[in-house]
Amino acid sequence: MTTPGNSSYDVWRPHVTVACVVTDRDRYLMVEEEVNGCIAYNQPAGHLDDFESLQQAAVRETREETGWTVALTHLIGVHQWRSKEHGDVIVRFTFAAKPLTHDPQQPLDTGVRRALWLTRGEIAALGECLRSPMVLMSIDDWLAGQRLPLSIVTSLMPGSAVP
């Protein structure tokens, strides 16, 4: 049996991720990426880094995966899901964001093939190519008017001011 004082003590932890639903009229910013040799589509999304607020992570991941700088406007929701890709649990904080500027020269993250703007219908038609069920769920939550104030997510980490 392991105990907190024992160096082999381990606590189960889910992966904490962030995503952005970035809208431009009826289109949504999406990422086409290669995952385990297959093409998948997702919102700009990724893992929370140490010493980073959830909001900082969402803005950073969007910029790294798409070249777009965004301003967060709301929290859409928090979703929990077990990934079919690796079997681990994902806890995903999804934010709504508006596009500000685009840098087409910015190199995109490893595995990201391109960023593209698609309508909800085009995204739904991707079916099994969506990275997770959270992709369409987040868009539908946003379309249904689910918008929580950003102040509901608070960080007490040093240097974690919202960008």
Rank of each mutant, 00 (worst) to 15 (best):
T2A: 14
T2W: 15
N6R: 14
D10V: 15
D10A: 15
V11R: 15
H15S: 08
H15K: 15
V16S: 04
V21W: 00
V21P: 00
V22L: 04
T23A: 05
D26I: 06
L29D: 00
L29F: 05
M30H: 04
V31T: 09
N36M: 12
C38N: 10
C38S: 12
C38L: 13
I39W: 09
A45T: 03
G46E: 00
G46L: 08
L48F: 06
D49C: 09
D50Y: 14
F51L: 12
S53T: 09
A57D: 00
R60V: 12
R63Y: 15
R63I: 08
R63S: 06
T66L: 03
T66Y: 03
T69N: 07
T69I: 15
L75Q: 02
I76R: 00
I76V: 13
H79A: 08
Q80F: 10
K84P: 02
K84I: 12
G87V: 14
V89W: 15
T94H: 06
A96Y: 04
L100F: 11
L100H: 08
T101G: 01
H102G: 03
H102Q: 07
D103E: 07
D103M: 10
D103V: 14
L108Y: 05
G111W: 09
L118P: 02
L118K: 09
T119I: 10
R120L: 14
G121L: 04
I123M: 04
A124N: 00
G127R: 14
E128H: 11
E128Q: 07
E128I: 04
E128M: 05
C129F: 10
P133W: 11
I139C: 01
D140M: 06
D141F: 12
Q146F: 09
S151H: 07
I152C: 10
I152A: 12
I152W: 12
V153A: 11
V153M: 11
L156T: 10
M157Y: 14
S160W: 05
A161K: 15
P163M: 13
